Amino acid sequence: MSTATLQWNAVCTVKDILPNTGVCALLEGRHVAVFRVGETQFFAIDNVDPKSGASVLSRGLVGNLGTHIVVASPLYKNHFDLATGECLEAPEHSVRAHTVRIEDGRVLVALG
C-alpha cells in the first residue's frame, strides 16, 4: 500500500519523545508504542505485550540484538524488532508494526 493512501494519525511532536525511549498512543482504539531511536529514527509497534496482555511495550528498554533494533518487554523481557514487530524469542508472540513519518516536527503513525 502506498504511503499516500494511508490514514495518518498525529501522535505528538518529535521533541515529546526523548532519544531511545517510547511513548504510548491510542490510535483508532488500538494501543500503539512509538519509539525514537537516536535522534532521527522512529518506529511504531503494538503496545500490548502478547504474553501478558498488558499495554507496556512503550516502557521497555530500547537497544539492539545483532542487526535488530529492539525493545525488551518490561514484563517477560522478550525482544521485539521495532521494524517488523517480530518477537525474536517466540515468533508466535509477534506484534504488528506500523508506518511512521515525521512532518513539520510532528510524529505521524499509520496503522499497518
Rank of each mutant, 00 (worst) to 15 (best):
N20V: 07
F80C: 02
K15W: 07
N78C: 12
G22E: 05
K51T: 13
G22V: 06
M1F: 13
T84Q: 05
A97T: 03
C24A: 13
N20T: 07
E86T: 14
G29W: 12
G105W: 10
S94L: 08
H31S: 14
A83L: 07
D104F: 11
V95P: 00
F43C: 06
K77H: 06
S55D: 14
H98S: 03
S55I: 01
A54E: 15
T40L: 15
A4D: 15
G60T: 05
T5M: 14
G53F: 11
A83W: 01
I102E: 03
T99N: 06
A97I: 03
G112I: 08
V11F: 06
H68M: 00
N78L: 13
V62I: 15
V14S: 11
I69L: 14
I17S: 02
R106C: 12
G66A: 06
E86H: 10
L18V: 11
V70E: 07
D46L: 01
R101G: 00
D49M: 06
G85L: 03
Y76T: 07
K77V: 02
L26T: 11
L88T: 03
T21G: 05
V107A: 11
V34G: 04
T5K: 13
G38V: 10
A4I: 15
T99G: 01
L26N: 10
V109A: 02
P74H: 03
V14G: 11
C12Q: 07
F80V: 02
D46C: 00
P50Q: 08
D46W: 00
V100R: 00
A54M: 13
Q41F: 11
S94N: 09
L61K: 13
R30K: 12
L18W: 10
I45R: 02
I17P: 01
R30E: 08
S52Y: 09
T3C: 07
P91H: 05
C87S: 01
L111C: 09
F80T: 00
Q7P: 07
I45K: 02
A33Y: 02
D81A: 05
L65M: 09
V95L: 01
S73M: 08
A10Y: 07
E92D: 12
